[in-house]
């Protein structure tokens, strides 16, 4: 196995992982900051309904 290729694969994994982690945290923070209160009754009613459509 060529060492440079192994290095490239590891770098790819690391960079992709970092990008994923960074944006994942970003999205989580955004979801937290811009949270919209939803009436919990909406979900309850939706659960009771048949939900065929």
């Amino acid at each position: 196995m060529d060492l440079t290729l192994v290095k490239l694969a590891l770098a790819g994994l690391a960079v992709l992982g970092c990008i994923g982690l960074f944006f994942g945290i970003g999205l989580a923070v955004a979801a937290n900051r811009f949270a919209v209160e939803v009436n919990p009754k909406v979900e309850e009613v939706l659960d009771i309904l048949a939900g065929a459509q």
Binding site: L16, I19, G20, F23, G26, L27, A30, A31, F34, A35, V36
Partner: peptide, 20 residues
């Protein structure tokens, strides 16, 4: 791979921010 991730990311971000 990265660009597909970015597209879904920006869609999700615009969705979250616009909703509020």
């Amino acid at each position: 791979v990265v660009f597909i991730g970015l597209v879904s990311l920006s869609v999700q971000a615009v969705d979250t921010i616009l909703r509020k």
